[in-house]
C-alpha cells in the first residue's frame, strides 16, 4: 500500500477524502434531523404539520408492511417506467434527427424550446378525455414530460461534437453508421446522461401530479388520501419512499453511463 502511495500518490488520494466526505454527509443529515425536530417542537407551526421523525419512521415501517401500499407503488412504478421508455426513446430519436441534420434542427428546434418549459400538467384534461382516468392518461403525461428534456439534451449534444472529429471521419471515408457509432455516440454519453436524469425526474412528476389531480390508485393518490385525513407522518413516508425510488433510478442511470464506452477504448489505445 505504501509503495502504491509512493508511486502514484493518486491511488491513495481518494481514501482520505472518502472518510471526510462521509463525516460531512452524516453531519448534514444530523443537522437536518435536529432542525426538523426543533421546528416541530417550537410551536411555530400548526400542531402535527411537522411530526417528529420517530412518528414518520413508524409510519414508514407500517407502509412497508401493507399490501395496499405495494399495490399503489406497483401502479406508479409501472406508469413511470412505461412513460420513461416511450418519452426517452422518442426524445432521443427526435434529438438525434435535429442534431445531425442542421437544417431540420434550425427549422424545428425553436418549437421544441418553446414547448419544453410548458407545464405539461395543463394537457391533462385533454389526456383524460383521450385515455380515461386510468393509467393511460398518467403514462401519456409522463411520456410527454420526458420527451422534451431528452430531445433537447441529445440535439445539443450532437451539435457539440468536435467538428475536427467529423472532418477526420470524412477523411477516413467513414459511413454514416460508422460516424454515428465512433464519433457521435461517445460524445453523446454526457448529454444523454443529463437528459435521462431530467427525463426520469419529470416523468415521475408527470405521472404523480396527474395521479394527484384525478385518480383512484397510485402513490400520488395514496399521498393525497393521507393529506385529506391529515395523517402527515404517513404522507411524508410515502413522499420519502418516492424520493428514495427516484434516487435509486438516478444511481442506475449513472451506472449505465459510466460503462466503458468507445471513448475509453480510445484512451486506452493511446
Amino acid at each position: 500500500m505504501a509503495a502504491v502511495e509512493q508511486i502514484g500518490g493518486r491511488a491513495a488520494a481518494p481514501r482520505a477524502p472518502f472518510w471526510t466526505v462521509t463525516r460531512l454527509r452524516v453531519a448534514a443529515v444530523l443537522v437536518i434531523f435536529a432542525l426538523w425536530e426543533v421546528a416541530g417542537a417550537s410551536g411555530l407551526f400548526y400542531r402535527g404539520v411537522i411530526p417528529s421523525s420517530a412518528l414518520v419512521a413508524k409510519a414508514f415501517a407500517g407502509l412497508l408492511g401493507s399490501a395496499d401500499f405495494w399495490f399503489h407503488a406497483g401502479v406508479t412504478g409501472f406508469e413511470v417506467l412505461v412513460a420513461f421508455a416511450i418519452g426517452g426513446l422518442a426524445g432521443a430519436a427526435f434529438g438525434l434527427l435535429l442534431g445531425v441534420n442542421r437544417y431540420t434542427g434550425a427549422v424545428l428546434e425553436p418549437f421544441l424550446h418553446y414547448l419544453a418549459p410548458t407545464p405539461k400538467i395543463v394537457f391533462l384534461p385533454i389526456l383524460l378525455i383521450l385515455f380515461g382516468v386510468g393509467v393511460g392518461s398518467k403514462i401519456s403525461l409522463g411520456a410527454i414530460s420526458c420527451f422534451f428534456p431528452m430531445a433537447l439534451s441529445v440535439a445539443a449534444g450532437v451539435r457539440q461534437v468536435n467538428p475536427v472529429f467529423l472532418r477526420v471521419s470524412r477523411t477516413f471515408n467513414l459511413t454514416r453508421a460508422q460516424t454515428v457509432r465512433m464519433v457521435y455516440v461517445p460524445a453523446l454519453v454526457p448529454p444523454l446522461a443529463s437528459g435521462l436524469r431530467i427525463g426520469l425526474g419529470v416523468a415521475i412528476v408527470g405521472c404523480l401530479m396527474s395521479e394527484i389531480k384525478l385518480s383512484r390508485m397510485g402513490l400520488g393518490f395514496s399521498a393525497m388520501e393521507y393529506y385529506r385525513v391529515f395523517d402527515i407522518p404517513s404522507m411524508l413516508a410515502v413522499l420519502i419512499f418516492i424520493f428514495l425510488c427516484a434516487a435509486l433510478g438516478n444511481m442506475a442511470i449513472d451506472r449505465f453511463v459510466r460503462l466503458p464506452g468507445p471513448q475509453d477504448r480510445v484512451r486506452r489505445a493511446r
Binding site: 454527509r25 436524469r197 425526474g201 401530479m209 438516478n250
Partner: peptide, 16 residues
C-alpha cells in the same frame, strides 16, 4: 444530493 433533488418530485411537497 443536489443531483438527486433535481430528479426528485419535490413539487409533491406542496401540501406541507
Amino acid at each position: 444530493w443536489v443531483a438527486a433533488m433535481a430528479s426528485a418530485p419535490l413539487v409533491l411537497l406542496y401540501p406541507l
